[in-house]
Design a protein around this nucleic acid. Structure first.
Length: 492
RNA sequence: GGUCGGUUGGCCGAGCGGUUAGGCAACGGUCUGCAAAACCGUGUACGGCAGUUCGAACCUGCCACCGACCUCCA
């Protein structure tokens, strides 16, 4: 395999060599969350998947403009709910301003992502901040003839579009199938066809989020924001558009149709979609009621969780599966991830303490290992494979530390660089540092006890030494003896 | 019902025609006053039935089961 990055393009249903539109630069747009509730594991997967891509593209030397939106208006709850806005609904039930809801859950989202070391995007536009631009897009679609006005709302004419273009290209759907499978739902009389979707929706009197427009006092349609904002910040043509697989239809399909209608051509070269997190084999989702919020993982405060899982454990867990595969949540899987991560990070610490030997050769072909790791990344970001190669390295690091193998000075340096690049720069993992100053007094107390134990041991007073160890263990410490005396940490 | 995807060892999860994926657990060993931890080593697998092939987890067909999307969704 060569050095080219292969990306699976949903639009083509195959891996393609990644070639940016402008040499050295990448424009990337990723669908962010609708901020009407706490972000859950699924949101984390999308964020981490594209964060990893962002990091890798930057590592490859690209200048990346990364745009990830916040949807704070425009997604309808469902047709049965009379087209009430998700944000507005939540606001009414909690008697808060819609923007308070938006702020709360946006902050929550940011906090969780930061804890998981997800880099912030370069631009994070909000739908409500781009009403004027969206109105302009609606007008363009009307001008092109693919939109129609009905009772103050503006709809996208899917049938007409499908006559001229390939509607369903991304999701592999055929318009006839869609038509035959569509249920007649209430409140759709305004539409010419059930397939049509709103690009501007007239607000009902009880609707509290609305803006003036040439057609009505209302709000922008469900899919319009991404078309509009990606165009605004990345232009009518950009490289990568990402999001969860559940967005392929209708959201991304609609985006394509809107772009073609508004600009005369598609905007996106590579469509990338991460797969779902499952719980007992079922998709985890807010509407399914089986979503576990991120802070619940961090605190362990959820009936399905046996313990707390650190943000880094969650991040690492995501990396153990390919982004296009479903990943099944379970306590066992998460605990395996926790231990695996621990082992990897410990090996990194060990690596930095290793001494090279000048006389004998190296137990390891670092160049080969390195190229295997990068081959995996270049193959549609295969992080589990890259990880498996890293663990080959771990084995060798440990053998060297055990004086069973040797490594040359050059190889040692390369190895350090390889591990640090992958663990920290590309995978975005970090070593959790405890705040030593806060715990100094009790740390001293524990050390004192263990010092007494060490003296007891030296006097072969096993009863006392074991008592101290057992009691501290009971109190929640992990005590380990080693050649330097002892070490301890709080039980995980 | 339509479209698409999946079914891998105790668990998670790669592989997509021949060579050990990897992690976790299990077992054996090293170390240790005893432990713990750490490290080293080892095993078990490709949903079923046919077919193609010198050779199939990987290709083809049929069957079974599961899921996603078809409605807001990461």
């Amino acid at each position: 395999m060569d050095n080219e990055l292969l990306i699976y393009n949903t639009l083509k249903r195959r891996k393609e060599i990644f070639k940016p539109i402008h040499e050295g630069r990448v424009g990337m747009y990723v669908c962010g969350p609708t901020v009407y509730g706490k972000a859950h594991l699924g949101h984390a997967r999308s964020a981490i998947t594209f964060d990893t891509l962002f990091r890798y593209l930057k590592y490859l030397g690209y200048k990346v403009r990364y745009v990830r939106n916040i949807t704070d208006v425009g997604h309808l709850v469902n047709d049965a709910d009379d087209g009430e806005d998700k944000i507005a609904k939540k606001a009414r039930t909690e008697k808060l301003e819609p923007m308070e809801i938006v702020q709360e859950y946006t902050d929550y989202y940011h906090r969780c992502l930061e804890e998981m070391n997800v880099l912030p995007p370069g631009i994070e536009p909000r739908a409500t901040g781009h009403i004027i631009e969206q109105i302009q897009t609606v007008q363009k679609i009307l001008d092109s003839g693919y939109g129609y006005i009905s009772n103050g709302s503006v709809y996208f004419d899917v049938k007409k579009y499908a006559g001229d273009h390939n509607y369903g290209e991304l999701s592999g759907r055929k318009i006839e199938d869609l038509l035959s499978n569509t249920r007649e739902l209430d409140g759709q009389q305004e539409k010419h066809s059930p397939l049509d979707f709103a690009i501007w929706k007239k607000a009902s009197p009880e609707h509290i989020m609305h803006w003036p427009s040439p057609w009505s006092e209302g709000f922008p349609g469900w899919h319009l924001e991404c078309t509009t904002m990606s165009c605004k910040y990345l232009s009518e043509n950009f490289d990568i558009h990402g999001g969860g697989m559940d967005l392929i239809f209708p959201h991304h399909e609609a985006e394509i149709a809107q772009s073609v209608a508004a600009f005369g051509h598609q905007s996106v070269n590579y469509w990338m979609h991460n797969n779902m997190i499952t719980l007992n084999g079922q998709k985890m989702g807010k509407s399914l009621g089986n979503a576990i919020a991120l802070d619940e993982f961090f605190s362990g405060n959820h009936s399905l969780l046996e313990k707390a899982y650190s943000p880094m454990t969650i991040r690492y867990f995501m990396l153990t599966a390919h982004y296009r595969s479903t990943l099944d949540f379970s306590n066992q899987a998460l605990q395996a991830a926790e231990k695996g991560l621990d082992r990897l990070l410990k090996a990194f610490k060990t690596l930095n303490k290793l001494k090279s030997s000048s006389s004998s050769g190296s137990a390891i072909d670092v160049k080969k290992l390195k190229s295997k790791c990068f081959d995996a990344m270049n193959d549609d970001m295969n992080t589990p494979i890259a990880l498996s190669h890293l663990f080959e390295g771990v084995k060798i690091i440990n053998s060297i530390a055990d004086n069973k193998e040797t490594i040359s000075a050059n190889d040692l340096e390369e190895m350090k660089s390889l591990f640090s690049t992958f663990i920290f720069d590309l995978f975005g993992l970090k070593i959790q540092e405890e705040n030593k100053t806060d715990i100094k007094p009790y740390e001293d107390a524990v050390n004192l006890l263990l010092q007494l134990r060490l003296e007891a041991k030296q006097n072969k007073n096993w009863a006392t030494s074991d008592k101290i160890r057992d009691e501290l263990t009971k109190a929640g410490f992990d005590i380990k003896d080693n050649s330097d005396g002892f070490s301890w940490e709080l039980k995980k």
